[in-house]
Structures are given as C-alpha cells and as structure tokens.
Amino acid sequence: MSVPSSWWIDWKLSPGALTRETAGRLVLFLLLGLFFLALVLSGGGNRFLSGQWTITAVLRFSVPEAEGRGIAAKVSGLAVVGSAVYKSPEEAWKEFTAAYPGLDSLRAAGGNPLPGYVEIRLRPDRLSEKAVASVDAALRPLPQVEEVLTGGKWAPRILRVKRWVNAVFWAGFGLLGAAFVAIFIVQEKVRTLLHAADFAFLTERGVSSRGMALRRAAAASLCGAGLALVSIGAAAGTCFLLDARYSFFRTVVGPPLEIMAPDAIVLLVVFLIAAALLSGAASLIGWRAALSSRR
C-alpha cells in the first residue's frame, strides 16, 4: 500500500535539507572522482616514471639505419613496451652536442664517434623489474646490439620507490574515501534522528521499519551512483581542460583520452558500484546508529 509513494522518503520529508546535503556530497564526490581518475590515468607514479626512464639498446657501428629501425619496430611489438624509437648515429651526435656544447672537435678527429641506438620506454602500467628483464632478455642476444642500458643497480631501487609512492597515493585515496563514508554515515544518522518522529508516525501506521530502512538505503545507493557518475564526468572534463592548458599534465597524469581504454572503464565501473554500495551501507549504518542512540 505504501511502497510506491514512500520510495524517496527523505526527499518527501525534507526536500530542501536533502538538496543541500546532496550538493555537499557532490562536492566530496567531485574531489574523490578527480583523485580517482588521476590515479587511474597516471597509475600513481607510473606514468611519470615511465616517461622519464628509458632502456637504451646501443647498436654496433656496423648496423645500418634500416636494420636499426627494424629492431625498433620489433621491440615496439613487445607487450610491455610503450614506445621504441631508433636514433641514427647522426641524431645521437646532435643530442650529444646539444647536451655538451663545445665538444664538436671530437668529430673532427675521425668522424662521428657515436653509434645509433634504440630508445625504449615501457608502458606505465607494465613498469616492473620483470618487464625490464624481459626487454633486456629480448635485446641482448641480438648480434646488432652492443649493449643494453637498463639502469643497472638503480633500477630495482627506483622501482621499489615507485611501488611505495603508488601505495601512498592509493592509501590516500582510500583514506579520503573512508573519511567521506564516515561523513555520509554522520549525515544519515543526523537526518534519521531529525526525522525520528516522522518515521515513528509511519511505522505506527503500518509502514514496515525494515522496509523503510531498505528503501532509504536503495535510494541512497542510487543517489551515490548518480553522484559518482556526475563526478567522473566532471573529473574527465577537468582532465581535458588541464591537458589543453598545461603540457606537464600529460607527462604526469596522462592523456585524458585513455579514459576510454577498457581497463580504465572497468575501474570506473568499479568506482560507481563502490559509491553506490557504500552510500547504501552508510544509510543503513546511520539508520541503525540513530535507532540505537534513541533507545
């Protein structure tokens, strides 16, 4: 009898207060959504590190340019490799002289002293010791390759630091999410206490208390999912704006279009589902807490 009209029971009881509360939650969700999207795109420190850190395969002097490009193309095909670019001896010389001006005289003695090389960057999401080792193992046996530079003894340390940085970022995200859930629980509890007399009125007139709690939780879940969706949309828009305005954004966070990648979409769906479930849970916990405190 009472189900259809009392689905959005809190909205019917106090639309103004609920609107303000929802607006507040939207702000929190916007913060969380932006944080989450930045983490998904960047992988924490992965994007920055993979942009800065290259594996260099130094080729022998005798390797012609076409062969060098062929090696680069083959390396690009490895699953862990983001990009592999062949640099000819001439390009290598230009880079050298740009980095160390005034050493032009070195070439006068006997031609270009630098060989060509292949500059390899790993995919941000695959950056690990195992990936470095697999690239090293693929290149080292080649007769055209003189040497493979992977960072030596520093590589494991840097990768360990990267893991810590990522853990700190995700822990920060988790803490922020937990803090917001705690705020939602308090909001739910206060609202339930405020409307305790209303709920008692309804219960005394045959509306099931359990049903009311579940309907409120369902409504809170829907609201949470909706707010999360809006926040992700707004965060994506913000990423596009920042990317257009600041060049470092792409280096640190990544290209916003990668939001459309299947892995990212799966994570965003998980975010929406988690937002819905936690909002519903907050509603139920707030309801129970309010009832307990009234007893």
Binding site: S2, S5, L13, H195, A197, F201, L202
Partner: peptide
C-alpha cells in the same frame, strides 16, 4: 508532540508537513 512539531530550533513543522507524512502512508 513538541519533538514532532519542532525537532530542532528553527525547524518548525507545519500542517502541510503532517498531511505530507500521512499521504506517504496513504499511497499514491
């Protein structure tokens, strides 16, 4: 009751609120 009529200062309930509550039970 007093708690029902004004659950917190500045939040006085009206006759309309009471009807709205009753209508929730009544159905659509």
């Amino acid at each position: 009751s007093g708690a029902f009529a004004a659950p917190r200062p500045g939040m006085a309930r009206t006759v309309r609120d009471l009807f709205r509550l009753s209508a929730l039970v009544a159905g659509p």
